[in-house]
Design a protein around this nucleic acid. Structure first.
Lengths: 272, 272
DNA sequence: AAGTAAGGTATACAAACGTATACCTTGAAA
DNA sequence: TTTCAAGGTATACGTTTGTATACCTTACTT
């Protein structure tokens, strides 16, 4: 019997506590924390940044006494970290699901890792369709979770060093996921992992940037989607070409060229 | 004689006034404005954002009476706009100069627009060297003007809608410049203007994002430079390939592949 | 020489802020 | 059943803030 081992006992106790909390409210956070986080998300969404919030204002919005804030957080930064943890949960896994969903709906079954040798052209075409579907779903998701996206992007280069650092790590995590998914779903031919990782970083960055525009400028959404699709396509073609797969997909490239020929010539509509 | 024309007279008077102001201080801004702008740049540089500043704090830093603020600005947003105008001047033209400087130092004389037909491979290689030089100079410039860059990037998705809008327009301006320079310096083969514009937008966005890392993480600078170079190369190869120039530069691509083969395999060093 | 606009100052005050201290409620552990 | 920690409240105080009012100086304009 190991149940007398002190560390194990401690672990069991913690597990039990977490389990109870999970059952009680189906979320780990206590009521006050929830209220304060929601208040912060609401207040920052439009024209505020986190450290422009006063904790009195926060408490007011949450319907709590100002001092209650201290029961949950030492300062605003700590609140910020809790919010980021919440956001990560709201975004990270859904993003992966969304990619798988897109991949499966396009390719029927997933792309096979030998497909790139047998028919690189078709593989690339399918892969780009998956990309398009993913882009669409991502922007939808971003618009649905506007408050979280706004806060995240806003604080990415915001005033608090610790939040900046945390967000950098989150973004790195997103990029890791993307790289892993590209590999697992065979969205690109075999390419060194480091390269995949860096390409994914650039693409995530651009996607989050564009999603801010997507949220803020509803009448530009179609154009933003097109931009994102084209950006990713360009980067992926650049990457594959750089790694020697260029000559193999000649026909597919022509198809892309034709597809964008019309929009490429359009005059810039400088609206708003 | 036209000198009696009222509008012209008015114009001459304004010209005279501007000229005098220019002479008196070699800058258009009055002393108080200067002090307040500098104070704001100093205070926001590290761990603040613009609308987290109080105007009393600003005045204190500037060595002025709190009320003096109102002699120059209606509110913090107006101060912000003045700062952005200042930043634009500090960045826009220098950026163009820097690109020309890089281009001329690499190519001796500028690339000719027929070079891409005659020897696309050499043209691309030269073009990429110009890119590298530009990236290096840009990051240096960013580090030297850290306060301006930080404020700009921070407020790009910051709390104030009007500043956001202004910065969006500034970024668009930078992208326009870049597209124009790519064309004038023949850094890419003939490509539709719209495409050039959009590629430039993506590259500027990424460059400013990376420049924040460059500023904040001095010990990662070499790696960040490499990432930027590689990103731009990838995008440019993607763009040219998409527009049918791929087959023409086969050899050059292999050169790039080899150049990055070593770094591509390196393990991720997850420092700090 | 007088007038005027721009830039700077001094004083004042209500409002909002962060936070300290102390007390109350409740649910679960002992 | 008592104990106790967690979460919430009430009151209070010193600071800082935005801004109003009024006055002063300087440099041009006329």
């Amino acid at each position: 019997m190991l149940t007398n081992h002190p560390t194990l006992l401690a672990f069991l106790q913690i597990s039990k506590k977490v389990a109870t909390m999970d059952l009680s409210k189906k979320q780990i956070l206590s009521k006050g924390k929830r209220l304060l986080i929601n208040a912060a998300l609401k207040l920052t969404a439009d024209t505020r940044n986190l450290n422009g919030l006063s904790l009195r204002e926060l408490a007011r919005e949450a319907g709590l006494n100002p001092n209650t804030f201290y029961r949950h957080f030492k300062n605003i930064d700590e609140l910020g970290l809790a919010i980021l943890a919440e956001i990560a949960g709201r975004i990270r896994q859904p993003l992966r699901d969304l990619r798988r969903q897109a991949a499966e709906s396009i390719t029927g079954k997933l792309l096979n890792d030998t497909d790139w040798e047998r028919d690189p052209e078709l593989s690339f075409r399918k892969s780009m369709e998956v990309t398009k579907a993913t882009v669409g779903l991502f922007f939808d998701y971003a618009a649905d979770n506007a408050d979280a996206i706004i806060l995240g992007v806003r604080e990415q280069h915001g005033a608090s060093p610790i939040l900046r650092k945390t967000i950098r790590e989150m973004m790195q995590g997103f990029a890791n996921d993307m790289a892993e998914d590209i590999q697992q779903l065979n969205l690109l031919p075999p390419i060194p992992n480091r390269v995949l990782q860096e390409v994914s970083e650039s693409i995530s960055r651009e996607m989050f940037q564009l999603s801010m525009d997507y949220i803020e400028r509803p009448n530009q959404r179609q154009d933003i989607i097109r931009k994102a699709e084209k950006f990713i396509t360009t980067v992926m073609i650049g990457t594959t070409t750089l790694h020697g797969y260029g000559p193999l997909m000649g026909q597919a490239l022509q198809a892309f060229q034709q597809e964008w020929a019309s929009t490429d010539q359009e005059p810039e509509l400088s609206s708003l």
